[in-house]
Amino acid sequence: MSEAQLKWGRTGTRVGFQLLTYLLLSLCAVIFIFPFLWMLSGSLKPAGQIMRFPPVILPELSTLSFNSYARLFQAVPFARWLLNSAIVSISWVCGALLVNSMAGYALSRLRFRGRDMVLMIFIMTLMIPFQIVMIPAFIITNWLRWVDTYLALIIPWIPNAFSIYFLRQYFLTIPRELEEAAILDGLNKMQIFYRIITPLAIPAIVTIGIMTFMWAWDDFLWALIVTRSKELWVVQLGIANFFGQYMNAWDVVMAGATIAALPTYLLFLLLQRYYVQGVALSGMKS
């Protein structure tokens, strides 16, 4: 084959490969976004239409209505519940990032007795089903007089073994040379932590931040058992309010669920740029 043909062939293959990739990605994307769209369209239809067959994904413009959203905010204090969720989730995330990164650093970079044992114990805390843990946890919360307060919603689950473990794994990948250079420069361990390690671990911290926010925002069962007053409800409880014994207000449920999904979405969108390759090691040059 001539050189020109070879070159052409390679480009053709590359374009084909790229096209295939995009096709695959787009197909997957449809599968992933589709139920969310269905949920959104369900919130814009009257309650009776959600189970129609053949399934109506795009509602006709004539029946499109934001009625369910209106009902959501009028029939119940949904705005207050959104605020509660925001308060709880943001406090939780702040606390979690602090506490868990400190623990992760200690378990990855510091040497002390019992270190590996502590890590093991932390991971073990993930292995027990929540239904069993929640009763004694509730008894303790009750004893602390935290029931029906924000404290009970925020504090108990701030230290989280998943986060600690993940951050620890991530910290392990940061090269030791950086630390050693810093020690030579006269920094102590704490300063290394927040001047050097933390900036390099931004992708991991952002990830944990998003996840913690998601867990806090989506938490249902714990909020259910420690909350008594309706003023203290969080969004997930609010949505469950519209489920009944025999019938559910599907349109309102879908509206609530759509709104509930938005904050995490927005957070993720805003923080996407921290997933850029190379940010982690930009400090290497200095």
């Binding site: 400190m102 200690a106 502590v118 108990p156 701030i158």
Partner: peptide, 20 residues
Amino acid sequence: LGYTLLAPALIGLGVFVIVP
């Protein structure tokens, strides 16, 4: 230093998860 950094996590997990 290690245990100081671990303290909040240890206490929190200890009270609400390990004790249960």
